[in-house]
């Protein structure tokens, strides 16, 4: 019944030669229901989810697309401390009826400070210590600039124009974490 191969495809397409990806531990299969209610195996990916050792500081998830035409994997990270940042990287896979496969159609990379006010307070305090000659007007101006910087969530979106055509089985998450 099961149609997948147990042979693990080698990860040959690494961009950075010095980088050694951890061995895959989690395998993701797509199992499709037919009109006669029977399930059939469609395809697998060994490099979609994190290895467990990575999970200690990164939370990965898969959720169904709200449009019911695919799924979204999400990799999130959050640091500790007043100057820490968070990041959440999403990969949107969409079904193509023509090729009967799922393709990466969008990546969304969101990042920002966990505690903008705390981070700004520390940096502003350092600036005051380092520059005692600053006038109040200068400090106010600096605070305004910092406020924009620390409260901003950076969002970067990419499409196949940026990364090409990537079907589900060939997706390598490690390409995005080097």
């Amino acid at each position: 019944m099961w149609g997948g191969s147990t042979n693990i495809p080698e990860e040959k397409e690494e961009k950075n030669e010095s980088y050694t990806p951890p061995e895959p531990e989690l395998r993701v299969d797509l199992i499709m229901r037919q009109k006669n209610n029977k399930l059939i195996y469609h395809s697998s990916n060994y490099y979609l989810l994190a290895n467990k050792e990575w999970d200690s500081y990164r939370n990965d998830s898969i959720r169904l697309s709200p449009n019911e035409d695919g799924f979204i994997t999400s990799y999130s990270f959050s640091g500790y401390g007043p100057l820490s940042i968070y990041s959440n990287l999403e990969f949107h896979f969409q079904y193509s009826k023509e090729s009967n496969n799922w393709y990466l159609v969008k990546t969304v990379d969101m990042s920002g400070y966990n505690s903008p006010a705390a981070a700004m307070g520390i940096k502003l305090g350092q600036a005051k210590e380092d520059n005692p000659e600053y006038t109040q007007a200068q400090l106010d101006s600096l605070e305004a600039v910092m406020s924009k910087k620390f409260n901003k969530e950076e969002i970067i979106t990419e499409t196949p124009k940026d990364f090409g055509s990537i079907p589900f089985p060939k997706f390598r998450k490690s390409h995005y974490f080097q």
Binding site: L26, L30, I31, N67
Partner: peptide, 15 residues
């Protein structure tokens, strides 16, 4: 997963 009105699965397995 493919907009055909049928309920499919994403199966995650551990080696």
């Amino acid at each position: 997963l493919n907009k055909d009105g049928l309920s499919d699965y994403i199966l995650i397995m551990e080696n």
